[in-house]
Each structure stands twice: as C-alpha cells, then as structure tokens.
C-alpha cells in the first residue's frame, strides 16, 4: 500500500533520514521505534508531504506521492495525527472535527463519519461546543484522533499518541487504536511507549540515526535484546 524506497530527507542542509526503505501493507499495523532524534517524526512528516524527500521515492497505492504538497496527500487518503495533538485551540471541538473533513471526498460523508467518531469517543460528543484549547491532554488526544478519522483515511499515521499523557489515558488511546484497526484502516505508528506499540503491531522497524537497522514482527522485536538495550540500557 505504502512503500518508501531509499528515502533521504531533512531540513535545510541538515539531512535526517539517510535512505530508509519502509513498506506498509493493506490492513497492517506497522510501527517505527527509535530514540529521540532518530528521525521518526521526520519519516512521518515526509510521508505526509510536509517535508520534501531529497532522494528516493514514496508510492501510495501505486502512485508516486513524493513530490505532492501536504494537502494533496490528505486527499489521497493519508492522514497524519501529529505529535502534540496540534488542535485548533480557539475553535470548538465540533469545528475541529469539521476541519478534519475538509477535503471534498470527506466532506460529503462528514455526518456519517461524525457518528462513527462519536461511537469511538463518547466523551468527545459531550464536549462539542467547548474550545479545543480548554480540554485536558487526554481529551485533546481523543479529539485529535477523531479529527484524523474525519478525513476518511485509508492510512493513518500516528506520531507519539501517548506523549505527555497519564498511564490510564495511554491505555485508552491504545484501545481506541485497536478499534480503528479493526475497521480496516491501515496504521503506521511512531511511539516511545515501546511495549504498547510493539504488542499491537504486526511488524516493526528500528530507526537509528536516520537509518533502518532492524525489522521484524512486533512480537519478535519485543523480545529483542538490542531493542531493550537501546531503550533503557538494560
């Protein structure tokens, strides 16, 4: 479904990704793990069209998307739920969700999608008329995910969905991701919460200093000594 081949990318003169190759199949849950600064976020931003790859190719459903601007990538069905939520703070929750369905394709089905989002996040329905900026971190993350769903994505990219959340909320977030996966959406997820992600992922990639150093099934990586050392020095 999504294929990155020898992709290099960075900001200005600084190259962050050095020729990484990643594949995500239809219906899979794939994760990228790696230390801070390894280039995980850059990978997702490059797929989403926010960062231009300097080398290599990115194809989605057979179409080359490496040169497309971000808003056209969204239209094709790839949605990034960014690190730190990035809600529109002075808009109501309802407006945030409507913005999620901005593309013509998603706008036509906005009402149905909204009902689906409410079924996943009953709490969000209660907060519809509040400003997004006034919600708690956990609620904001729920809105961010719901907003991402509003775009009717085929491929959802999650960037650190558990960042800055209390453990109990993290658990809820991952349960939600499970439910989303169950509806047939393909997921690529980047997380520092290694255990959670690897345990729900079909496959994982280990990214170190902008290079893929290892790839295996989620379960195998979870037992891997190298992964454990890289994460806690044990």
């Amino acid at each position: 479904m999504l294929r990155l081949e020898r992709v290099s990318a960075g900001y200005g003169r600084v190259t962050i990704l050095h020729g990484i190759s990643i594949e995500v199949g239809q219906g899979e849950v794939v994760t990228i793990v790696g230390a801070n600064g390894a280039g995980k976020t850059t990978t997702l931003r490059t797929i989403a069209g926010l960062v231009r790859p300097t080398e290599g190719s990115i194809t989605f459903e057979g179409k080359d998307i490496g040169r497309l601007p971000a808003h056209e990538v969204v239209d094709l069905g790839i949605t990034l739920i960014p690190e730190g939520r990035q809600l529109f703070p002075y808009m109501t929750v309802r407006e945030n969700l409507l913005m999620g369905a901005y593309t013509p394709r998603a706008r036509a089905e906005a009402d149905q999608t909204l009902q689906f989002a409410f079924s996943l996040f009953p709490r969000v329905k209660e907060k519809l008329d509040q400003h997004a900026g006034s919600l708690s971190g956990g609620e904001q993350q729920m809105v961010a995910i719901a907003r991402g769903l509003m775009a009717k994505p085929k491929l959802l990219l999650f960037d650190e969905p558990s960042l800055g959340l209390a453990p109990i909320i993290v658990k809820q977030v991952f349960e939600t991701i499970d439910k989303i996966v169950a509806t047939g959406v393909t997921v690529l997820i980047v997380e520092q919460n290694v255990f959670h992600t690897l345990s729900i992922a079909d496959r994982g990639y280990v990214l170190e200093n902008g290079e893929i150093t290892m790839t295996d099934t989620g379960a195998a990586l979870l037992k891997n000594d190298h992964v454990r050392r890289a994460y806690l020095g044990i």
Binding site: P69, V74, D75, T79, L80, T103
Partner: peptide, 16 residues
C-alpha cells in the same frame, strides 16, 4: 481560521 491557529495542522487537514 484554522490556518491562522495552526498552519501545520491546517495542512494536515488538506488545506492549501
């Protein structure tokens, strides 16, 4: 308004 409040997030919504 969305663009004003968060231009990166606006791009992610498919806004040019």
């Amino acid at each position: 308004r969305a663009t004003a409040q968060h231009r990166h997030a606006a791009q992610l919504m498919g806004i040019d």
